[in-house]
Design a protein around this nucleic acid. Sequence first.
DNA 1: TGTGTATAGTTGCATTTGAAATCATTTTAG
DNA 2: CTAAAATGATTTCAAATGCAACTATACACA
Lengths: 153, 153
Amino acid sequence: MTDTRDILTLEHFLPYRLSVLSNVVSNAIAEIYSARYGLSIPAWRVMAILGRFSGLSAAEVAERTAMDKVAVSRAVSQLLADGRIERTFADEDRRRSNLRLSDKGWEVYDQVVPLALEYERNLIASLDPVDRDALDRLIDVLMEKAKALPIPA
Amino acid sequence: MTDTRDILTLEHFLPYRLSVLSNVVSNAIAEIYSARYGLSIPAWRVMAILGRFSGLSAAEVAERTAMDKVAVSRAVSQLLADGRIERTFADEDRRRSNLRLSDKGWEVYDQVVPLALEYERNLIASLDPVDRDALDRLIDVLMEKAKALPIPA
DNA sequence: TGTGTATAGTTGCATTTGAAATCATTTTAG
DNA sequence: CTAAAATGATTTCAAATGCAACTATACACA
């Protein structure tokens, strides 16, 4: 009978390491648009996804950004108020919104995106192509696994 | 003169991918202790670090967990109220706290840690040893780089 | 010693967040 | 055709979070 105690070493615990890394990176990116354009993280996420897929509904934005629908709703209000997106409602179902960047929104988008991409380039600059592929693959594998894993008993 | 527009593809953008992965994993882990033991994420982080390094001050907890000192202060109050940690103040500097798990705290710790470790094991179960090493190394490299990178201009 | 500065930790306040309730519209079933 | 259920989106309210101000103790040095 052993009475050894399991010890959790945070600095080696993958979930913790991911969380710290993700926070540092997200905060750095947020600097690009928060101070300069007064965009919250949710607001920028909405703009980013609309830059890629124009005409999505609020629910589709939520799904594609992994955001809460309340967060999307609030970000959309703010962006509408600032004139950075436009909204119509679908003819065939007038509950359903159609969201897209306005000209003003595209201007912001065109300023922020190159900076965000540059940050990413710098971040991975020290990785060789093999490492970059490995990183992409590992994230995909972990993501799939995490989604499939049952909530621990 | 080209007028191609940079498009940010969120699903390929590393900071976004990290954020989503980290959220999914953190939420799964939080399930282990939040519902069952009424522990918030900050409270559990404090317990986890005290299980590893007993006697730390609040500031040292903050440093080692990458938490805000206000968050630590509040988590400490809560844990004291629940009787899960004990606090004394250092003789040589009575501002400085000494925090440690109580017997009751260790009981919770001993329940949660094996489940957290099991979750981690399951998460990386499909990675071979080479991939696991690569993952650890890549996180370290990115972490160092992220800390060193200037806030984007 | 006394005065100014630094440090550990807490508290107050304003903002953000999230869950649940609500509103409006559409779809389904009888 | 209507009543009930479902869906897209917003609002409400309570809890979590973060910054700045504050308290208490310690240190520096004239």
